[in-house]
């Protein structure tokens, strides 16, 4: 049961993305992109990494 706690990591993208007032601003800009845009693009990468971590932590090694 302990390994299921890893799944809690997957809540992060929901919290980070589903309340737009959190990131709906222009500053700080990155490479000319307003915060609104690069913040959400960064979450794409972070979510991919989180999924990779949860996958590695929860997969059953005996199979496959």
């Amino acid at each position: 049961m302990r390994k299921n706690w890893w799944y809690a990591l997957l809540l992060a993208p929901f919290l980070g993305l589903l309340y737009p007032p959190l990131y709906d601003r222009a500053d700080p800009a990155l490479g000319g992109l307003p915060f609104f845009y690069w913040y959400q693009l960064a979450w794409v990468i972070v979510t991919s990494l989180l999924l990779g971590i949860v996958y590695l932590a929860t997969r059953e090694r005996t199979r496959e």
Binding site: Y7, L10, L11, P13, F14, L17, L18, F36, Y37, Q40, L41, W43, V44, T47, S48, L50, L51, V54, Y55
Partner: peptide
């Protein structure tokens, strides 16, 4: 229109589980 980005991000934890 940029809603497509959070949409195409949070879809994947849903797929995973």
């Amino acid at each position: 229109g940029f809603f497509a980005v959070p949409y195409a991000t949070i879809a994947y934890p849903i797929v995973f589980v």
